[in-house]
Amino acid sequence: MARDIEGTTPPQTPSRRQDAGKAPKCTGSRCLVLMAVCTGLICVLLLVFIILQHIFITAERDLLKNYKDAVQVFNQTINRLQDTYSDLMTENDQLKDRLNYLNDDLKKAYEQGFQWGSGWFFISNVSKSWSESRQYCRDRGADLVIINTEVKQSFITSVISGNERLWIGLSDIIQEGKMKWVDNSPLKQG
């Protein structure tokens, strides 16, 4: 039985009606367990966040490294292409100079040029021997003409005037009396 101490009032127990709208209060050990669980959940969430952040940072670092490598390869390719372009432009200029030189040389050496089929025939205005004429042609990647068809014969006859003398690619230089073209094919009669 409870005894009242003078000047103190015994603790009042709230009635059920007074507690009806209030949340129940945690009692000692239940509160501690709930706080520990919440703290544990927060720690787990923080750990997951740290792991995800590490994964994303690592992936971003790898992506950045790949990007830097790609940029480096791209820059090296650009440098090689620029060098190749410079070399090609230099070669192009040299070829243009050579072409101009050859054109000037052709203008000096040839009086007339005629296209026939896929080839060209040039008639020089400089008198030379058969051997000199052939060498002159060979120095320019050509040779004296081989007349192996009547059509070609008619064409050549049509482009020369009656008093011009021409060397053609036919001789008996290898064996006297046996005529051969400069490609070693024999002369065919008729």
Rank of each mutant, 00 (worst) to 15 (best):
D4V: 05
I5D: 05
E6M: 05
Q12P: 00
Q12F: 10
R16M: 08
A20P: 01
G21P: 05
G28K: 10
G28V: 09
M35Y: 03
A36G: 12
I42K: 01
V48G: 01
Q53P: 00
I55E: 07
I55R: 08
I57N: 11
E60A: 09
R61F: 06
K65V: 10
N66G: 08
N66A: 11
A70K: 05
V71S: 03
I78Y: 03
I78C: 01
R80H: 08
L81D: 05
D87P: 00
M89W: 08
E91I: 09
E91Q: 15
Q94R: 14
R98D: 14
L99Y: 06
L106H: 09
K108I: 06
Y110I: 02
S118N: 07
W120V: 13
W120K: 10
F122H: 01
I123T: 07
S124C: 04
N125L: 06
N125Q: 13
V126Q: 15
V126K: 13
S129Y: 03
W130G: 00
W130Q: 01
S131N: 09
E132I: 04
S133F: 02
S133C: 13
Y136P: 00
R138N: 10
G141M: 11
G141N: 09
A142E: 10
V145N: 00
V145F: 03
V145K: 01
T149S: 15
V151M: 07
F155Y: 07
I156A: 02
G162S: 15
N163Q: 11
R165W: 12
W167P: 02
I168W: 02
D172W: 09
I173F: 03
Q175C: 14
G177Q: 10
W181L: 11
W181D: 08
W181V: 14
W181T: 11
V182K: 02
D183L: 14
N184I: 00
S185M: 10
L187W: 11
L187E: 08
